[in-house]
Nucleic acid binder design. Structure first.
Lengths: 345, 345
DNA sequence: CTGAAAGCGCTTACAG
DNA sequence: CTGAAAGCGCTTACAG
């Protein structure tokens, strides 16, 4: 005999009372509750999750799906570890636990998610790195499991999401560069189908149009979201006959590789080429000249994501009355020296 | 009605047969099995995990505990993301899933682990960043849940572990520096109670003794395992009257901060000070002069960890006959320019 | 080869 | 305030 039965026997009361005492139900004698609580600590009893879940239909666990692609791994993206801190600060208020579900790169993400959801180990899901077409969202909508995404998508119908303000970054970058006299402004965008690339490029094209500058596809470098991708973008740019005078990067680590390739070619950022990076990143802090980039709090983003998710879960919605919602997460420009020069006409 | 009951009704057979067919039991008519499998796919049926776990007493899930300290987050340690790839490649052979359990920094790690284990959501645990005294290991030993650690500890009694060869790194670093004429060799070691610091320092002291050099405590800088820690170590070193001529770092990102502080002071690595870094790291690749460091495959380490864990689990031990074991994981020296000069006597 | 039944550990109406 | 009992969804001896 083990579990709650053993504890009940040890206390010589019924398992029902033990359960009620442990779960903080009101209709338990104060003294009984104390005895139960004390015995639970003494014997190290914690309710078996499978038993609870089966009975209650909930697990009190929120899942964060991560695609651990080779690319992500090698570049050491600290984004997820930062997010968890903010997520947990909210979830812990409600005694919810966070688990990270790393999808193997060989496995189809939708099938992996399907399996995880069907097994019933989570009450809600957080999905990141949304693709433009992302069947995971269709799956979650169909299954009716509460979820929130970090990033928009064309899939999944109506749902709650939080996304970075890529449009804002594109606009303020272009405006800033044009104010300094630039007309040929390049972009290094992700080569995969992640949705943020599309949003950013839309913003970029609109911003150019606003300034009456024609869109030139040869100035859009589609590269990996990595340091290597930045190197590649610089490499391709240097091969152009009519080089751009400025470049905007859409991934934080690109700047490192870009600087390296530029340095090899004797092109100095901030003097020969204006560079605006994406998210401010500790690893890019050492760059010389300092990088103009955008600041945001990853932890606060985690808070926002968690609250948005809970708002869609019936059991917690009363705490977060905003309900289902879509949030554009702002980024703040941090001026550096990398785009500090005026372009002479 | 839902779950297996619904599926059985749809097929007009008993739930027992459905279960046996789905679980690949031998005593099922081939045609029946086909029908069941087809229907499961069609209706998107996957067995509820809580139901299975409760009945079987296993969850087919392996947990990887991570302490998401602020320090780790901000430094973007890609180590864990790299590990998961290797871990999963082994676990997936046995249809085991990996989940990452991020312990909030506010919470006591042992209590967090206790809760996760008692809930019964994992069949086995992987513990990293072992402390010299680490109550998590005592807990796991007591609970008799299969586990493996990345890193040794004085706690927990007999158990399986894999650990990097810190002693080897210390020895070959010291030997190498001494061969180049250095006598005053400093070390930047972690300031927290993580066990690897102790092991490394033991190796360092023994290596010095082997060469007849007295141990000088003022040459051991205890700093954070981060870029900032490297900066701090360099800073403290520069304040010394009798400066060392060489320094060994025990964390990969320290090199970045160290270089920065040295550069600020006009001290050139590889000319004025010999530097040996720890693990080879993409983010430190850009350093000039190139860093002498040690190479290892994080993915293969994950493979080793997973196989070591499975060897201790009765259900899988037959596949990994090595049984419980302790492995010292080798690192290979990668010569760079940072310690390339001969020290003049 | 299949079905009927027990039971994994819990929580929660229900009765007292 | 407490106990007895049902039942969450599954797997697995057991009987046929």
């Amino acid at each position: 005999m083990k579990g709650i039965r053993q504890l009940a026997k040890h206390l010589d009361i019924s398992i029902g009372t033990v359960s009620r005492a442990l779960n903080g139900k009101a209709d338990v004698n104060a003294e009984t509750r104390q005895r139960v609580l004390a015995a639970a600590v003494e014997l190290g009893y914690v309710a078996n999750q499978s038993g609870r879940s089966l009975r209650q239909g909930t697990t009190n666990v929120i899942g964060l799906m991560m695609e651990s692609s080779k690319e992500t791994n090698e570049n050491g993206d600290n984004f997820f570890l930062g997010l968890t801190s903010g997520l947990q600060s909210v979830l812990s208020r409600h005694k919810l636990d966070l688990i990270m579900l790393p999808c193997p790169s060989e496995e189809d993400p939708t099938e992996y998610l399907q399996r995880m959801v069907a097994r019933g180990i989570v009450d809600g899901m957080i999905i990141s790195a949304t693709q433009r077409i992302d069947h995971r969202l269709d799956l979650l909508s169909r299954t009716k499991i509460p979820f929130v995404t970090l990033g928009r998508s064309q899939s999944g119908g109506e749902y709650s999401w939080v996304d970075l303000d890529f449009d804002g970054v594109a606009n303020s970058s272009v405006d800033r560069l044009i104010a300094k006299g630039h007309r040929r402004i390049a972009v290094a965008a992700p080569s995969n189908d992640v949705n943020l690339g599309y949003i950013f490029l839309d913003g970029y094209r609109n911003a150019l149009k606003r300034h009456g500058i024609a869109y030139d596809p040869s100035l859009v470098f589609r590269v990996k979201s990595s340091e290597q991708g930045g190197y590649q973008a610089a490499h391709e740019m240097l091969l152009l006959d009519d080089r751009p005078t400025a470049i905007i990067l859409i991934y934080e680590l690109m700047a490192i590789g870009l600087y390296r390739r530029l340095t090899e070619a004797g092109v100095i950022p901030g003097r020969d080429l204006a560079v605006i990076g994406f998210r401010e990143e500790p690893r890019a802090k050492f760059l010389q000249p300092t990088l103009t980039c955008f600041r945001m709090s990853v932890r606060d983003l985690g808070v926002e994501l968690a609250e948005t998710l809970l708002a869609t879960m019936p059991a917690y919605a009363s705490f977060y009355p905003k309900g289902a919602c879509n949030t554009i997460w702002p980024l703040e420009l941090v001026p550096g020296e990398s785009d500090g020069f005026e372009r002479k006409p």
